[in-house]
Every structure is written in C-alpha cells, then in structure tokens.
Amino acid sequence: MSARSLAPTAPGAPTRFAQTAMVSGEESQTIEPEFRPLDPRVVRLWRLNYLVGFGVLLLMLLAGAVTAVLARPALRPWAALLWCGTAALAGWLSYWRPPRLYRAWGYRIDAQVFETRSGLFFHVSRLLPLARLQHVDLERGPFERIYGLSSLVLHTAGTHSASITIPGLDAGEAVRLRDHLVAIGGDDAV
C-alpha cells in the first residue's frame, strides 16, 4: 500500500469545514474532505528543535568525551570518532526527518468526526467523535512564537489517548479551529 499524498491547500486560504450530507437513518454519506496539511513553516520549527536538542546533547557528549580523554589519552581517536559520528547523525536527522514528518501529517474535520494522521514508521490515524471532545488547549512554545505557529491540544476522556496534539498550525488558523471545535464540540457525562 503506498502512502497517500496530501494535497496542500494554498497558504493563507480561508478555513472551510466540510458539511456532511445526512442520509436518512443510516450511515451518513460524507463528502469526505481532503486531509489538510500542517503549516509548511513547521519544517523549519522542527529543524530548529532538533538542532537545539542535539546541540545540548552534543555539548554534554563533548564534556564527557573530554573528561574521558583526559583520564585516558589512548581513547582519543575513539572519542573523536564517537562524537563526530553522533554529530553527523544528528545533522542528517535534522535535515532528513522534518520534511518527511510534515508530509506524513494531516488532519480533517467534518460535522461529526475530527481525524488526524501522522507518523513515519508508526502510522497512526485517530478519529475523535466531536461530541467526545472535552476541551481544547492552545499551546505556543518559545520557538513556535518565532515562526508564528501554535499547537492545538484536544482533550478526550479516553485513557490511552487522553489528548491529541496537532503541532505546527498557523496561529490564526489554530484559533479559528479552536473556536470552531468549541462551538460544535459536545459535553457529555460519561
């Protein structure tokens, strides 16, 4: 099975939430909307996250390697090899992974269900009946603010998937989506 390609919408296009055509009684025939991608800027955000994270890791490794070499100079070539190898791996990951992760991500919403799909090695598709939505949070980390992005966190009453996070949404888009979800989401006693 080949991976589905996600048709990107033009950046800055207004949000359109598909309506569902209800067929009497039985399963509704939905005009299924296409999966919406995340904001393309999220690739840069993830790269920055990786670089910072790996940077810290490499610094710590460097400190460890230096102490090891000072204690036992014979280890110098091995320590250098290890550190350079890790740095190369980190650099390659930061370059290679974010765009693929971005292509794998998608979400869509209709009148009944909110669906997300994500994952490179482990594909996960999550469907959330909108009446099950408990509440919605907007999160913006410091790096996200630089790129004008934010994350949407949907909380459910489930046990294993108590929250679903959609990262890398354009800030204005995230607010619109949140307002829409709050308006149509349900509150129910379990």
Binding site: F122, H123, V124, L127, T159, S161, V190
Partner: peptide, 30 residues
C-alpha cells in the same frame, strides 16, 4: 456510545502486508 476515540495503527510490518490494528479507546480503562 461509550467510545471516546478510535485509532488505526500501522507499524512497518503492517504497512508491508497492507494490514492495520484497530484500537478503541474508552474512559477509565483499568
């Protein structure tokens, strides 16, 4: 009516065989 969320998961082997795992999440699974 107690279903909170439904997931379809595929690991690498699943993808090669065209299969998937379906998980139903409910509240208070203990």
């Amino acid at each position: 009516r107690k279903v909170q969320e439904v997931e379809v998961r595929q690991n690498w082997f699943d993808r090669r065989l065209g299969l998937a795992t379906l998980v139903v999440d409910t509240a208070g699974q203990a």
